[in-house]
Write a protein that binds this DNA or RNA. Structure first.
Length: 590
RNA sequence: GGUCCUGUGGAGCAGUGAGGAGUGCUCGCCGCCCUGUCAAGGCGGAGGUCGCGGGUUCAAGUCCCGUCAGGACCGCCA
């Protein structure tokens, strides 16, 4: 080893020892005659005292040094209580420059810069960014999360299995990334959107308890919490029911949050999908604050106000919202229109209890009188309304609820709220979505085509697909969906009935999922599982907004890696070898 | 595919409303001084296609059009 000690570990007890340290110059304070270096390695920093000015003079920020010297207690009064190593310093005997450093594109020591450095320049020099305390801690926390999950699962008899990252394109939800196959020009591998099909095959294989920290790939447009490649903690178990998967999941989550000294209370509360939409207008409600939505359809059943003559009317309270300016209230209209709504009707509750605003005069005396109590509004509050089809209206109110919670500071940023969303519908009408439908039927799977119906719907789901409930569960933390899974179909007859609802013929099913259906012919065990959004979970643990902060080398919005410059053109020779430009013949399936 | 925000020495900002010489701030960088600092200090200095292209104008960082890049959101993401 080049060193005998780690810089951040030296204490008063080391005084008198001769040590060798290796690390980077975090900061240099040259007094001419005596110079102080903060030498940083992964463990922290120690102050090094260089008394030879000719040695100290040429040293610069982020030079990589090897220093041998004696640990001494700092002179009386010169201790730095802000540093763990603040009681000692290392009097440099020899200073060897292992590596010099050019002037930096940005400062590593962010304590000295008032404002944060821009993300683009940080990502272009991510290897420097990761020398900083915050980013370094996030990557190390991720490693700890991986360790904790592995320990919890391995101790419970789980087997870690790696599945292919070059596989067959299967019709799942998202667009596939594809890889040309040199040996079969015109044919392509796909990168997996998840290990879903493989983990089910592993259940057929008798693994019984599988997990993997799995990389997944989806070629979709970006959002703050999306990357083209992302990570799931993927779990699948045989001979289990919903409660078994949930119980295991809660143990894993509790172990993870212990990393940040949070005791997660289990069992976690559950909401049905229906309740979540009725009360919070979303399937991933943030329960760190209240402000539930109130359905007002019955209240306005006989209204003369055209806008409220709708299949659904609901409202949400904006505490103290009546004092908003006209401009702010108009801003909400733009906000709603940006979400595809016509607008956001509102009523202001005066301090005297009188209702005002453009909508109020359209309401009857009785409609006005009961309204504040019905929605839980006090004098000085505002009430926002959405009217129209049930789900879009609830979604709008749910988004408004969240926006109100954020604007009014109702959200306790230190709180952790976990909730399971259960009993999601199995199907949704194709007309309600623009999904690339797997089949040609009027219905498409909400979760995926292998999700089992709840036991009580086993006989009737195909007779009443609009109301059939799936044996599926999503885990939501502070308004983020951090995990989701289901009990799978293991019976061929049930699977075919699901395909029938989706308009998928046996022949079509065989073509698309044949390898899975074939496997299910050979004694498939009942099984189910869950996948956790690992990047989001670690981001929550790290207390950062963006999952980019917990990915070592993330990509920016266009799928571009500012560090390597990927994606980049390839040479003509590479194109030729890869067979990218081969046009499939008529006898080849594309 | 759509909407909004941002782009000014190496970093972070101000300057754009209401056009008038690349003006300013904090940090960094370079040189000199300095023997107890720890965001060291003092003095001096260098460093700019104002993202890019076009237009309006006597004159554009500033106004208009287009475009590129980054961020956020809608669509999309079983």
């Amino acid at each position: 080893m080049l060193r005998t000690h780690h810089a951040g570990t030296l204490r008063a007890g080391h005084a008198g020892q001769t040590v060798t340290l290796a690390g980077w110059v975090a900061r240099r304070r040259d007094h001419g005659g005596v110079a102080f270096l903060d030498l940083r390695d992964a463990s922290g920093v120690s102050q090094v005292v260089v008394r030879d000015e000719s040695v100290a003079h040429e040293l610069r920020s982020e030079y990589c040094l090897k220093i041998t010297g004696q640990v001494e207690k700092r002179p009386e009064g010169n201790e730095n209580p802000a540093l763990p190593t603040g009681d000692i310093e290392v009097i440099a005997g020899s200073v060897e420059i292992l590596s010099t450093a050019d002037p930096l594109p940005f400062q590593i020591d962010d304590a000295s810069t008032a404002a944060p450095v821009g993300e683009e320049v940080r990502l272009r020099h991510r290897y420097l960014d990761l020398r900083r305390d915050g980013p370094a801690a996030a990557i190390r926390l991720r490693s700890e999360a991986n360790r904790v999950a592995r320990e919890e699962l391995l101790a419970d008899g789980f087997v870690e299995v790696e599945t292919p990252t070059m596989t067959r394109s299967t019709p799942e939800g998202a667009r596939d990334f594809v890889v040309p196959a040199r040996l079969r020009p015109g044919s392509w591998y796909a990168l997996p959107q998840s290990p879903q099909l493989f983990k089910q095959l592993l259940m057929v294989a008798g693994i019984e308890r599988y997990f993997q920290i799995a990389r997944c790939y989806r070629d979709e447009d970006f959002r703050a919490d999306r990357q083209p490649e992302f990570t799931q903690l993927d779990i699948e178990m045989s001979f289990v029911e919903q409660d078994d998967v949930i119980e295991l999941s809660e143990r894993v989550v509790a172990a993870l949050w212990k990393l940040i000294d949070v005791d997660v209370r289990t069992p976690m509360p559950r909401l049905t999908y229906r309740e979540a939409f009725d009360r919070y207008g979303t399937d991933k409600p943030d329960l760190r604050f209240g402000l539930p939505i109130t359905e007002l359809t019955d209240h306005f059943a006989d209204t003369s106000f055209r806008v409220f003559q709708a299949p659904y009317v609901g409202g949400v309270v904006y505490p103290r919202g009546a004092s908003q300016t006209r401009k702010e209230l108009d801003g909400w209209q733009d906000w709603a229109k940006a979400r595809g709504a016509k607008g956001l009707a509102y009523v202001l509750v005066g301090e005297d209890g009188e209702l005002s605003g453009p909508v109020a005069k359209n309401l009857s005396e009785s409609e006005r009188a009961a309204l504040p109590d019905l929605v839980g509004a006090d004098p000085g509050d505002a009430i926002f309304f959405a009217a129209g089809s049930r789900k879009p209206s609830q979604s709008l109110l749910g988004a408004a609820r969240l926006e109100i919670g954020q604007r009014t500071g109702l959200i306790d940023e230190d709180a952790w709220s976990f909730v399971w969303i259960v009993d999601a519908p199995m199907f949704e009408a194709v007309a309600d979505t623009d999904d690339v439908a797997v089949g040609t039927g009027a219905w498409t799977a909400v979760h995926h085509a292998f999700t089992a119906p709840k036991p009580e719907w086993l006989d009737s789901f195909d007779a009443d697909p609009a109301n059939a409930l799936a044996y599926a569960y999503d885990l939501v933390c502070n308004g983020n969906e951090i995990g989701g899974g289901s009990i799978r179909i293991h019976r061929r007859d049930v699977q075919q009935r699901v395909f029938d609802v989706m308009g998928l013929s046996p022949e079509q099913a065989q073509e698309k999922f044949g390898f899975l259906l074939d496997a299910f012919k050979y004694g498939a065990p009942p099984h189910g599982g869950i996948a956790f959004g690992w990047d989001r979970i670690v981001a929550l643990l790290a207390g950062t907004e963006s999952i980019r902060d917990v990915i070592a080398f993330p990509k920016t919005g266009g799928g571009f890696d500012p560090l390597t410059g990927a994606p980049a053109p390839i040479t003509a020779q590479q194109r030729k070898e890869a067979g990218v430009d081969v046009i499939p013949g008529e006898d080849e399936s594309s």
